[in-house]
């Protein structure tokens, strides 16, 4: 029994460590990727993937307790909010005229091609 608990603890630590490594890689991506969309991609993977690994790891380490439940609830919130935030950010960037630099998407004519006026207002940096 004690053995099982010990290994669960070790597994938790491994997951948390993996989460930590993923965040480092993610932030490297935020720094190195060429445009907003790819950077956002890196950032949102850190937000969801790394956070999942860490929170689950911590929950395993906390064992069967109130803390573990709280961590799971926190995870549910992260899964709800951070994709939404990334989506809103990308949406705002797209509608203010930012075009992706990479991939086939940049060659496609998007359904909502940004208009000239939108581009101008986007450059003011006023849109939230």
């Amino acid at each position: 029994m004690a053995d099982v608990l010990f290994w669960i603890d070790q597994l938790g630590m491994a997951l948390a460590l993996a989460g930590g490594i993923l965040s480092v890689i993610g932030s490297l991506g935020v720094l190195r990727f060429p445009d907003l969309y790819t950077r956002l991609h890196a950032a949102s993977i850190t937000d969801t993937g790394a956070a999942t690994l860490m929170l689950f790891g911590l929950a395993l380490m906390a064992g069967f307790s109130q803390e573990a439940l709280k961590l799971l609830i926190a995870w549910a919130f992260v899964m709800l909010t951070s994709p939404t935030a990334s989506h809103a950010l990308a949406n705002a960037a797209w509608s203010s005229g930012q075009k992706p630099k990479l991939g086939a998407f940049s060659l496609m004519s998007g359904k909502r091609e940004p208009a000239e006026a939108d581009t101008a207002s986007g450059e003011k940096g006023g849109a939230p």
Binding site: T81, T84, H87, N91
Partner: peptide, 9 residues
Amino acid sequence: DHHVVLRSV
């Protein structure tokens, strides 16, 4: 206005 995802979340 068109932020459907935002609104539902």
